[in-house]
Nucleic acid binder design. Sequence first.
DNA 1: GGAGCCATGTAAGTAGTTACATGATTGA
DNA 2: TCAATCATGTAACTACTTACATGGCTCC
Lengths: 188, 188
Amino acid sequence: MTLNLSPTGWTILGFLSLQERSGYEIREVAKRTVGLVWGISDGQLYPQLQELHQSGLIEPVGTPEGPRSRQVWRLTGDGGAALHGWLRAPSAPLQMRDENLVKILFADQLGPGALLDLLEERRRNYSAAREALRDIVPRARRDNHGHDETVFGPGLVHLYGLTFVDAVIGWCDRAITSVMSSSHQWRV
Amino acid sequence: MTLNLSPTGWTILGFLSLQERSGYEIREVAKRTVGLVWGISDGQLYPQLQELHQSGLIEPVGTPEGPRSRQVWRLTGDGGAALHGWLRAPSAPLQMRDENLVKILFADQLGPGALLDLLEERRRNYSAAREALRDIVPRARRDNHGHDETVFGPGLVHLYGLTFVDAVIGWCDRAITSVMSSSHQWRV
DNA sequence: GGAGCCATGTAAGTAGTTACATGATTGA
DNA sequence: TCAATCATGTAACTACTTACATGGCTCC
């Protein structure tokens, strides 16, 4: 039987499996790597750390004494085993929540201008996301034996972000062109 | 000030703005058109209809008497105005929840097999979604004056689904190839 | 010595899912 | 007549967000 954690809990466990980190560091690395596909808010992060601790999946490393008292956490043996179980279990079924697209479905009852506004809003949002992605160079992890270890994850996820965002921007451009070229015959 | 409804509430309002429908019919059309990007569960749908009714945004049409007693709902004037307000308001910021991708970030600590399993799981899921989309031919709405009215929405959203799904499948293929070609030098 | 960030945490609320219940109706 | 689907609804729960609170540190 697989332990029952929230996806965010598993995500935190995942980051701790790579190295010891404080909550704040998890927040940073999560934003950098999976920010686009899995946001973590503070109100989730810190309580989850406490829960994972109580479940014996993570344990504190030392006591906070460095600059800006950060509590560093480390995966326990149980935590590692649980994480591996989750990684091999079937993923939750595909589901999205995309309010902007729902609006696009209904917007043309207001005329082509409203629809174009929504398409351009979408294009702006995804262009911004692309800018953010562009600056990130995914890091490979170097293991503790001093060898280079090929780590696919960060590169794959980064490439996924680019692929996805580019596809959406391309669709926006085609949609805008198509609406504009038809709108001269729009019935007012 | 824009009225405060859940996105699902607005979606329901949107479908009723096109024509009168029962809850069950909303469920069907929603699944067909925005199912990929905005799922609606029964436990949301029916209570939301009651709330929209109490807010005066929709009203019952007749009393259930046809085959399989369906309560049909229609948009009120207030409902139409509220919907238009929502359509013009800025959309919620872009956000995703994609568990499978999070796993892909961490999976290679189990070796290339586990990572390939996840990539193939993703490919299967999106291929199934593509199959489902392929059978749908988006319908244009015919207005009550008997004229053909070009309605972009359904076609655009349908095309979006195809574009998105294809981009993901393409990424899966590239990722699988890349992992397989590197895995012969994998360190056990 | 004050502005502003660092780091953690809490409380209240929201949106949604799953699982179940019900009773009617249709089709083999 | 019995299974399946139709159509609506409810209850319990889960995950997550937002907004706020706190106190320390840093830098000019």
